[in-house]
Design a protein around this nucleic acid. Structure first.
Lengths: 210, 210
DNA sequence: GTCTATAAAATGATAGAC
DNA sequence: GTCTATCATTTTATAGAC
């Protein structure tokens, strides 16, 4: 009984109002953590952003750390999905262009999630390094075997599959993580993702065509 | 007289011991700010890292903000140099490969500076946005004109010069900013920059050759 | 569930002796 | 120049009323 009650505080909540506030807090925390990093964010800020009092926020998440962990856990699930979707039965170049496209869409639609991840990595990945060394590494290993087979079969221009994947990550995430800089240089204040997509399609078509 | 005395606290110091401690503090602050960002860093941490007492550190830099500004100012000078060196009289492909190489060397030799910059951009560039919109933008504009001329002359494969420069930034800085992730995925714990250089050379040769 | 009040610790900065 | 001591504020978290 006590264990059940305890779990309810860390598990997805049950009542309507609980679900609503739970979501409000995660939304607010995403905004604040993605901009200032874990240590730079304050519970006050998150509570204000969520429109809740600080004690009320801490009724839902016992500590600041708990909120951060909840965000990172949710993120890691979605973070791997685009690469998991790389299909061995598809056409190699189209598959990799599709992967690039999905990653660019994530930069466009979920820039805060991208910056949350970037903050964590910049700080040395203190909370998700274990996940990177297992989940992410295993997934990348598997997909690199596939890419290597495509290259050996002459369906892709040969290169290092690992660094090829790194290049997809860096080029697509750049438009979320460094979007302010891109906007400043272009004088637009914001990224034109259609433009970015055209350039990256051209870029990887040249890189991948045998 | 008073103004001179005041300036000496913000200008490069004069005596041997001042110069030494000034440098010690900037070195320590670079370490801490690059990992935790401005708000996540504490004066205590920086003082401990520098081997000085907190009041003694604050004798050299009046506030935490002053140290951060000093680091960013120094950084912006060096940050533009590799692009400035792009030479209109050189061979186009070699010039751009050389620029990529210089940027990758900076990721290898000055990863903390790269992460300091990344932290500032991630946080919305609150301190250096004006510099991005003027100094950086003007420099990029000028170099993109040159690159466009090279493309028009058929010496480079055509693409968007701005996004081409963004791709050089993102691919090279990735090995500093996301080095922990690269090391985790490769199982090496650290980036092999020789390997990265080979891949990026191949990558941009394919991208740029007409 | 939500609030006011507040404790306990940290953090940025200063005072003043030496 | 460097130190000890300390202040003022911010910040995390809790207590307890409603």
């Amino acid at each position: 009984m006590n264990e059940t009650a305890k779990l309810e505080l860390t598990q997805p909540p049950k009542t309507r109002i609980q679900r609503k506030n739970h979501a409000l807090i995660l939304e607010a925390a995403l905004e604040v953590f993605s901009t200032h990093g874990f240590r730079g964010a304050t519970v006050d800020q998150i509570a204000a952003q969520a429109g809740l009092s600080k004690p009320n926020l801490l009724y839902y998440f016992a500590t600041k750390e708990t909120i951060h962990v909840a965000l990172l856990s949710r993120l890691m699930e979605n973070w791997l999905a685009p690469l998991e979707a790389l299909n061995a039965d598809g056409a190699p170049i189209e598959e990799l262009l599709g992967y690039m496209h999905r990653k660019l869409e994530m930069s466009r639609d979920y820039p805060r999630e991208s910056r949350l991840f970037a903050n964590e990595i910049l700080q040395g990945a203190p909370r998700i390094l274990p996940s990177l060394e297992t989940d992410l590494r295993n997934l990348v290993d598997a997909k690199c075997l596939l890419i290597q087979r495509w290259m050996d079969a002459g369906q892709l221009a040969p290169s290092d599959p690992y660094h090829l994947i790194f290049s997809i990550w860096s080029l697509t995430q750049h438009y979320a993580d460094f979007g302010v800089q891109v906007g400043a240089v272009l004088g637009t204040g914001a990224v034109d993702f259609e433009q970015a997509h055209q350039h990256l399609t051209l870029h990887f078509t040249r890189m991948l065509t045998p």
